[in-house]
Computed example of a mutant assay.
Amino acid sequence: MVNGLVAAYAAGELSTAEQSRTSPDPPGQEQAARAAYLARALGGGAYPLLAGALADGAPRSVPEAAYRAGAQPAAGRLRGGEPPRGS
Rank of each mutant, 00 (worst) to 15 (best):
V2E: 00
G4L: 08
L5T: 00
V6G: 00
V6I: 02
V6T: 02
A8Y: 02
A8K: 10
A8D: 08
Y9G: 05
A10V: 07
A10E: 01
A11N: 11
A11L: 06
A11P: 07
T16C: 06
A17T: 04
A17N: 00
E18L: 11
E18S: 08
Q19G: 06
Q19R: 11
Q19A: 12
S20D: 11
S20V: 02
S23K: 08
S23C: 04
S23W: 08
D25F: 08
P26A: 14
P26Y: 12
P26R: 13
P27D: 05
P27S: 14
E30H: 12
Q31I: 12
A32H: 09
A33Q: 03
R34P: 05
Y37A: 10
L38W: 12
A39M: 01
R40F: 03
A41R: 12
A41S: 14
A41N: 11
G45P: 03
A46C: 08
Y47F: 14
P48T: 10
L50S: 09
A51S: 09
A51D: 03
A55Y: 06
A55W: 11
D56E: 12
D56T: 09
D56P: 05
D56Q: 11
P59F: 13
R60E: 01
R60Q: 07
S61C: 10
E64M: 07
R68N: 09
R68A: 03
A69H: 04
A69R: 09
A69I: 04
G70H: 13
A71F: 03
Q72G: 03
P73A: 02
A74L: 15
A75I: 15
R77Q: 10
L78C: 15
R79I: 15
E82R: 14
P84T: 03
P84M: 06
P84F: 09
R85N: 12
R85G: 14
G86M: 01
G86V: 00
G86H: 00
